[in-house]
Write a protein that binds this DNA or RNA. Structure first.
Lengths: 340, 340
DNA sequence: TTGTAAGCGTTATCAT
DNA sequence: ATGATAACGCTTACAA
């Protein structure tokens, strides 16, 4: 049998209301009585039924975290950031893997609404904003993480234009002018923005952009592999490749190795994200570091604030990416020279 | 305003009970009336309040997933396996990161009980079974994943003795007899069992076990690094190192590289887990593959069965590990010769 | 087939 | 400081 405040009340000889007050710490209750109640509650292994509590208070202390796929090495750190902040504030988080499918997104969002979560942190891969807009309209707080959308709600993202600009400039600084670009899907904001950063960097350095050097990937390893092969087949092939995430950079490295092309001596490679193994593969991958944990933790903090105050002005957080230079772009001697 | 069945009822001109029946599909309701109700519900953007529903039915359709750390590359696949099966069956999963701390474990378990989750999948790093036992006793279904405990409940683990036996035998077959072992924490079952597998393999091949070759690590990269340094300082140093997880194997490789010792020519290395980057580091890591996704998906399936039938006999699932031979243990020519 | 009403375990309002 | 009692939104006997 599961203990309720009624049983505790009976046991102690008071009313359920008093037990509730004692347990929640709200409202007056004589000190010794409170202690007695607390003790009995512990003895009876009482665990408050938050379902019942939520029903009356309107707070579930659950937040939803909707992302494409937790096995994608980019997301665990975000999830951890979210969960840490949530837990520290008494919230639990429901994890949803959408695989970027609009159907699953809608599905999960519906489930979360039914579960009366207090808020949602959402990383979409869709342009379809309908579900999200519905969610926002339904007045459950939402914060978009990592990827923006054209919806009126808070978000925290990393400045992808700047990240791509840094990566591209780095390669240009190394003397490259034929830089292959393997982008992400153009429909997600990060995809479009990284092209923008790439093209600005070229422009600022008076390098003409060559369309045949630009391929649209899908953030998966295989598309990095495929597009690299294609780029290598070009009559005037690139001397550097900038893959817009590390997974695709991995694919690029695999394609290059297969062709026996040395990295970085013959072709330099730069990735994006700094997923855990970027630093342990060989050659170690030069990449744009995203503050993944912070994306999650800050998103959650903003969500908590939003839950407290629905009327505060919309928050738009742009975090800064950093270029981490490693072996895949810089020949060792050069790197040492640079650091002098 | 959030829509309730009362408003739908008023709108349609029927009683709340009828709306409930129409929506849930249980109980009789005239076909056209049901359709009318469904339509109005959709128009009013109705989302059933599962808190209220759960309160009466006693089912929350939430399960808890308690693990050490989702950013540890071993866990995302497990989490995904759990979540997939859960979602397919109409359940959501609450993610809890304990960092292996007994306090956090107890904390989360309490929260989950309060949230009235229908079941818990638990990967502990503690020997302290008190919380779990309490949970089991409190008659909420629990299945232990990856790591067993001395508690009466279902579990799904991978046979660590066999995995370690295979890894060790592989090294022995390669001619090694001085095999350094970097174990996991002895208090978790996988830690103890992998030593057992190692020692059985040695015994079966009539190799005397040398205590100084065995170090207790903690499944973190740094302990692999430290212990490898120590092993290399031995007067008669090992020609092979078996690290009981890939993270520690990574540390071992780093230590070896630092000393300029070639792998596998001078020292062979074998890891355990086959985390995502085991196959992309150089040298590619020979390792014991654990069916991570299946640990999660099967654990969840067992949990669902258990939820349906609390009296069925206890399920104990041992999955089989597989040795994946890669470059860190076998010199290329030898490998080719082997495959002939 | 539909409606009435009790009850799930809390919190919260209002007396006392 | 404590106790009745009415919500919260739903399901489910039981009646009609």
């Amino acid at each position: 049998m599961i203990t309720t405040i009624y049983e505790i009340a009976k046991h102690v000889g008071v009313s359920p209301a008093t037990v509730s007050r004692a347990l929640s710490g709200k409202g007056y209750v004589r000190k010794e009585l409170r202690e007695k109640i607390l003790q009995v509650a512990k003895e009876m292994d009482y665990h408050p039924n938050t379902l019942a509590r939520s029903l009356v208070t309107g707070q579930s202390f659950i937040i939803g975290l909707v992302l494409p796929d937790i096995t994608n090495p980019f997301f665990p750190a975000i999830a951890r950031g979210v969960e840490d902040v949530a837990h520290r504030n008494g919230y639990n988080v429901i994890l949803c893997n959408t695989d970027g499918s609009a159907r699953k997104e809608a599905d999960y969002l519906g489930l979360l609404r039914s579960k009366r979560v207090d808020g949602v942190i959402f990383t979409t891969s869709q342009v379809v904003t309908r579900h999200v807009r519905q969610l926002v309209d339904s007045d459950i707080p939402v914060v978009l993480a990592d990827r923006r959308m054209n919806v009126d709600c808070d978000f925290v993202v990393v400045d992808s234009i700047e990240g791509a600009y840094k990566a591209t400039s780095h390669l240009i600084g190394l003397g490259h002018s034929a830089i292959g670009l393997i982008t992400g899907p153009q429909k997600v904001t990060t995809g479009a923005e990284r092209i923008e950063g790439y093209s600005r960097a070229l422009r600022d350095h008076h390098i003409v952009m060559r369309d045949e050097l630009i391929c649209e990937g899908d953030y998966k390893e295989n598309s990095g592999y495929r597009h690299t092969k294609k780029l290598l087949g070009l009559s005037s092939r690139p001397t550097a490749i900038f893959a817009c995430n590390d997974l695709m950079a991995m694919g690029a490295l695999a394609a290059l190795e297969e062709k026996g092309i040395r990295v970085p001596e013959e072709v330099a490679v730069v990735g994006y994200d700094d997923i855990p193994f970027a630093s342990v593969i060989r050659p170690r991958l030069t990449t744009v570091v995203q503050p993944k944990y912070e994306i999650g933790s800050i998103a959650c903090e903003i969500l908590l604030e939003r839950m407290k105050d629905r009327d505060k002005p919309r928050q738009e957080v742009f975090l800064k990416p950093n270029l981490m230079i490693r072996e895949s772009s810089v020949i060792l001697e050069v790197k040492e020279a640079l650091s002098d």
